[in-house]
């Protein structure tokens, strides 16, 4: 039995963990990227970046003040006896508690045009995926607004194919330029339909940056996309250089014979996420 209270506490702690530190693979990828940049300005930025992470950890303050939209991915085993309604309620309560307790920024407005802050960072955006088994895996992604705003979706023609998709990925990053805090992590969703492609793009961001795509075809595509993105010359903070992105992750899904949807979700260098697995 996994209670609502257990879930609430677990989610509140994920809010803390995601805000005050970076996942190991992201840190490693950034360290590797900055090592390749020799310009004094970029090395100066690297020093600030390292100092920023140290201070955030030591003082337990958010590494980035934009602690984002709380995007929560849940893998729910079929033996886990909690209704989706209760699960969603518990996750939102966890976000409320975590954002208050740890002094995280509340960045959600109730209505997109009337713009009154909900004052507790809810509602979280929650995706529940049914699985076999007896565990409940919860992943919290804190998605900052600046990088999210640079994302794009396009319905390509099937004839545009591999090259068309690559061009669109690179063009999205070119247009993002320095607005979303490069070096970026680029999440790409290909296939599905108009609502599934961006979901895949977001989900792909959760893949460990040290792990290659399981499909050699898409592994090659990711590497090609990354190479072309890093030839754009945007660089860390937009100050120029070879590293504009530290990873491209692709997720795909079956799609209609007439369609080739592609969504590109831009993610900032402070790629903050944390997971917990609860067992019954």
């Amino acid at each position: 039995m996994i209670s609502q209270k257990t879930i609430k506490i677990a989610v509140a702690e994920l809010c803390k963990k995601a805000s005050f530190s970076l996942p190991k693979d992201v840190m490693q990828a950034l360290d590797n990227a900055f090592k390749n940049e020799k310009s004094p300005r970029v090395q100066d930025i690297y020093k600030l970046f390292k100092k920023n992470i140290q201070i955030a950890g030591k003082k337990q303050v958010p590494a980035c003040q934009d602690t984002g939209t709380s995007v929560v991915f849940v893998e729910k085993g079929d033996k886990v006896k909690i209704s989706d309604v209760d699960l969603i309620n518990a996750i939102n309560n966890g976000v409320k508690v975590g954002y208050k307790k740890y002094f995280l920024r509340k960045s959600i407005v109730k209505d997109p045009l009337r713009r009154e802050n909900t004052k507790d960072n809810t509602p979280a955006i929650i995706h529940i995926e049914p699985k076999r088994g007896s565990s409940l895996k919860i992943t919290l992604l804190q998605k900052g607004g600046g990088a999210e705003n640079c994302s794009q979706i396009k319905m390509l023609k099937p004839a545009e194919g591999y090259e068309g998709v690559l061009d669109f990925i690179v063009e999205t990053v070119r247009q993002a330029s320095s607005k979303g805090c490069p070096p970026y992590v680029i999440g790409v969703g290909i296939g599905g339909n108009f609502e599934q492609a961006p979901y895949l793009a977001k989900k792909s961001l959760l893949r460990n940056l040290t792990k290659p795509n399981k499909d050699p075809f898409y592994d090659k595509m990711e590497k090609e996309a990354l190479k072309r993105i890093n030839q754009l010359g945007i660089g860390p903070q937009g100050f120029g250089g070879f590293v504009t992105a530290i990873g491209v992750n692709i997720e795909v899904a079956p799609c209609h014979i007439a369609s080739l949807p592609v969504a590109v979700n831009t993610e900032c260098s402070m790629h903050r996420h944390a997971s917990v697995t609860l067992k019954i």
């Binding site: 337990q60 303050v61 958010p62 980035c64 003040q65």
Partner: peptide, 22 residues
Amino acid sequence: YAGPSPTKPGEVIGSIGPTTSA
């Protein structure tokens, strides 16, 4: 251009990086 996170007790202000100027 910035929107700080809430100020913790004992601090002067919260986390306060820049937002997108565009």
